[in-house]
């Protein structure tokens, strides 16, 4: 499954400045692993030992994957994934 992934400014250091990159995978987890093959280190910015980092939002098309199936969310051809760091603080 080939999908486009929109990368936020803060992670474009991994993608040589690219805003949109392509990745493959049948689930979100597989897409992130594939991203990490081409852009080493990026997975670590998205995941911790418990899964998706609390303050990283990932959307499949228009939906936050937390309201879908998280990392197990199935990905179909031509889906679009958007990564956005939470805007949050204290």
């Amino acid at each position: 499954m080939s999908v486009e992934v929109r990368v936020p400014t803060i992670l474009r250091t991994y993608t040589a400045g690219e805003k949109v990159v392509a990745a493959d995978g049948a689930s979100l987890e597989a897409v992130i692993q594939d991203l990490d093959v081409n852009y080493p280190g990026i997975a670590d910015r998205l995941l911790d030992e418990s899964g998706l980092r609390r303050f990283v939002n990932v959307y499949l098309n228009d939906e936050d994957v937390r309201f879908l199936d998280g990392l197990k969310t199935p990905i179909a051809d031509a889906d679009s994934i958007t990564i956005l760091p939470a805007v949050a603080g204290g």
Binding site: N57, D62, L84, V87, G90
Partner: peptide, 15 residues
């Protein structure tokens, strides 16, 4: 009173 976070759906629409 001690924390803020943009709603995740609002955040996507904003960007």
């Amino acid at each position: 009173p001690t924390f803020y976070e943009f709603d995740s759906g609002d955040l996507l629409r904003l960007y």
